[in-house]
């Protein structure tokens, strides 16, 4: 298994080259660029409709690997078909990797993802979570955190909170499928690539959820993508952990979380969240963090 210790170990070769149509500072694009360093050119990226669907635009593509875009809700099933097609034709050594947003993962594609994970198909599923339906202009998904404003959960006289639902605990749900499930952050690329490297060697399904900071939707300065990705981890909004065979391992432990306000204040989507909303979000984060600390090293699901 390929192991990386520092940033200097990252492969120089790039399979995501120039000509991408993504925003400056786009987190999900950075994630795919990093992932392809480990996955290499004999990889089929199965994409669910979303921002990343616009990376290739006929007749151009910034990618030096294969790509299938089917629709939004069926990337997992498409990947399963590609996996078995390759296996039956004697191409077992090619990688099949889903790269799908949170709307396509948590919401419309959940049934197909769950079935393919339950069957433990040899697929790596990377969910780039920008906490919204991003490509349509930032609408609510079940990955949107409490208190975030979106275009379909706008703040108003009758609802100062914006998003009142609490986001789904997707990593736990995937962990309960008895597959490898992990979170990752662009602020910790070595950790992300090691997790991918591990997933690549597994004879079964792996789920990696990468926080895909979204400069347009979250409404922040594109220079801040990595800082925000780091603050998300330090503030407990995006804890770094993995679940394998139901056992939880916390990858980044802190004696104390930074207050969530440090993460919120850099982003327009939280700008007008009233203090009681911030307090409530802090409680939710503390509860989740305490749960992870309690089960660290033990059976979690």
């Amino acid at each position: 298994m390929q192991q990386f210790k520092t940033l200097k170990d990252l492969p120089e070769q790039d399979y995501f080259t120039g000509g991408s149509s993504a925003c400056a500072g786009c987190g999900p694009s950075m994630g795919l660029k990093l992932a392809l360093k480990v996955l290499g050119p004999e990889t089929i990226i199965v994409n669910a409709s979303g921002c990343m669907t616009l990376l290739p635009l006929y007749p151009n593509t910034p990618l030096k690997a294969s790509w299938i875009h089917n629709a939004i809700e069926n990337a997992s099933s498409t990947a399963a078909g590609a996996r078995h097609g390759l296996d039956m034709l004697g191409n077992k050594d090619m990688n099949v990797v889903v790269y799908a947003g949170d709307g396509a993962t948590y919401d419309i594609g959940l049934a197909s993802l769950s079935a393919v994970a339950a069957k433990n198909e040899r697929i790596i599923y990377i969910c780039y979570n920008n906490q919204s339906f991003g490509n349509t202009g930032f609408q609510w998904s079940t990955a949107t955190p409490y208190g975030s404003e979106t275009k379909t959960t706008p703040r108003g006289k009758n609802n100062p909170t914006g998003t009142t639902a609490v986001n789904k605990d997707m990593v736990k749900i995937m962990g309960a499928h008895r597959v490898y499930a992990a979170t990752a952050s662009l602020a910790y690329p070595v950790d992300f690539l090691n997790k991918l490297s591990r997933a690549k060697e597994r004879d079964g399904f792996s789920y990696i959820e990468l926080l895909g900071a979204c400069t347009a939707g979250w409404n922040y300065d594109p220079r801040l993508t990595i800082r925000i990705s780091k603050l998300a981890v330090r503030c407990g909004m995006w804890p770094m952990y993995e679940i394998e065979n139901g056992i939880l391992t916390l990858n980044k432990d802190f004696s104390e979380l930074k207050p969530i306000d440090e993460f919120l204040k850099l982003q327009g989507r939280y700008r007008a969240l009233p203090q009681d909303g911030v307090d409530r979000l802090q409680v939710l984060i503390n509860e989740h963090w305490a749960e992870l600390k309690e089960y660290n090293g033990q059976r979690y699901v």
């Binding site: 069926n74 997992s76 099933s77 498409t78 399963a80 078909g81 097609g85």
Partner: peptide, 13 residues
């Protein structure tokens, strides 16, 4: 829906 999606994935390779 997944049947036809998987069919597409396999036929695409």
């Amino acid at each position: 829906h997944s049947v036809m999606s998987a069919a597409v994935g396999a036929a695409a390779v």
